[in-house]
Simulated scan of single mutants.
Amino acid sequence: MKRILEIVLAALVAICLIAVVGIYALSEMRLSRTYEVAAADFTVKTTLPAEEAERRARTLMCGGCHHDAGNILLDKPGVGRIVAPNLTRLAPMYNDAELVRLIRHGVKKDGTGAAIMPAGNFANITDDDMAALIAWLRSLKQLPDAVAGGTQWGPLGRVGLALDKIPFEADLVPADLTPAATRPADIGEYAFRTDCSHCHNLDTAKQSEAFLAPALKPLAQSYSAADFKTLLRTGKGVGGRDLGVMTQVSQWDFRYFTDIEIEQIQAYLTRQP
């Protein structure tokens, strides 16, 4: 009997080891998957003053994730630690065409996908705003990393990768994009597509890996114009409520919208059928 138990235990250990090795191998295959997206030529030409180029660039949500020199987006035992890298150090490693591919397609310099990069939204960035964004990135003074180390995947994260459950937006963005050349005069819909829709739906709540985001149309309708400006500038809800991720993103990014732009965003959200 003892011998039988030893054989069964050894078999179970062997099965577990095979499963662990298999999950690790599959997760590594997922992380090393490459995308056939060419880094098309992109010439940075912007006639905007440096201050306006920076203002437009900052409205496109870079700071909310990356902060000034890198930021931890997720740190959960078993799942892993996901780091948004230091852009002041990363940008000089890419030429302009490679930066455009990274931003619009979520494809890194080596052809692999960037996890949790909102390329599905950034695919909508117009050429003139992309030029402003890259010009701003090129102007940044290089800073030491604010976060030691990079992204690391735990056992549960590895299982998610092996099962293809971790989002890589490089899977969703078409390779043959034709973005608009110029930023629209009324940025309401444009801001929704480049920024807001990453976290929010218009009419229904949207569950992400980290939080539940409310539907934007009823939210925008429930806010006065003054309170909506306060929301985007400070990330604070009515009564000064802290709104977590929204508060952080607003304070890093959305506070750079002008009054007119905020009015256009609210008008677009409230007039949707």
Rank of each mutant, 00 (worst) to 15 (best):
A53M: 09
C16N: 11
V159S: 02
A119L: 10
N201S: 12
G239A: 09
L140N: 03
R55Y: 05
I166N: 00
S27E: 03
Q152Y: 00
K141I: 05
P155L: 13
E189V: 06
G78D: 03
N121P: 02
P144R: 09
G22M: 03
T204E: 14
I125T: 05
R81G: 08
P214I: 07
L99K: 05
T126D: 03
A225P: 00
L133R: 00
L60V: 05
A69T: 08
N71C: 05
L243P: 09
M1Q: 09
R138F: 08
V173P: 09
L156F: 14
D242L: 13
T234I: 06
A210Y: 05
L60R: 11
D164I: 02
G106Q: 03
T43G: 10
V147P: 06
A69V: 06
S32E: 13
G154D: 06
Y35I: 08
F254V: 01
G149C: 11
L17N: 01
V83C: 11
I4Q: 11
D195V: 15
G22S: 15
I82M: 12
A14Y: 00
E209P: 04
P167G: 05
N124V: 01
G149T: 09
I116Q: 05
L202I: 14
G149A: 08
M117P: 00
A10Q: 02
K109A: 11
A181D: 13
D203S: 12
V173Y: 01
P167V: 13
P49Q: 04
L99P: 02
G64A: 12
I82S: 04
L17Y: 00
M29A: 14
L202K: 13
A53N: 07
G244Y: 02
E54H: 02
V238I: 15
C196Q: 02
G63Y: 03
A25G: 12
V173A: 07
T230Q: 14
M117Y: 03
M117Q: 12
A185F: 00
A267Q: 13
P85Q: 10
A25W: 09
T234H: 06
Q142D: 10
K236T: 02
T182N: 13
M246L: 09
G154F: 05
T182Q: 13
F254K: 06
V249S: 03
I262Y: 01
A225T: 10
A175W: 00
P218C: 10
T270G: 02
Q221G: 08
D75W: 05
A57Q: 04
F192V: 09
L48W: 04
P218W: 04
A25E: 04
Y268H: 11
K217V: 13
R3A: 14
I7W: 09
L172S: 13
A50M: 09
E52C: 08
R89M: 14
T112Y: 03
D128P: 08
A170I: 07
A14S: 13
E51F: 08
D127W: 00
K109S: 07
L143M: 14
L177V: 11
D127E: 15
Y256W: 15
G237N: 11
P155K: 05
A225Y: 00
R183Y: 01
L212I: 12
I23V: 15
D227N: 12
L231V: 06
K45R: 12
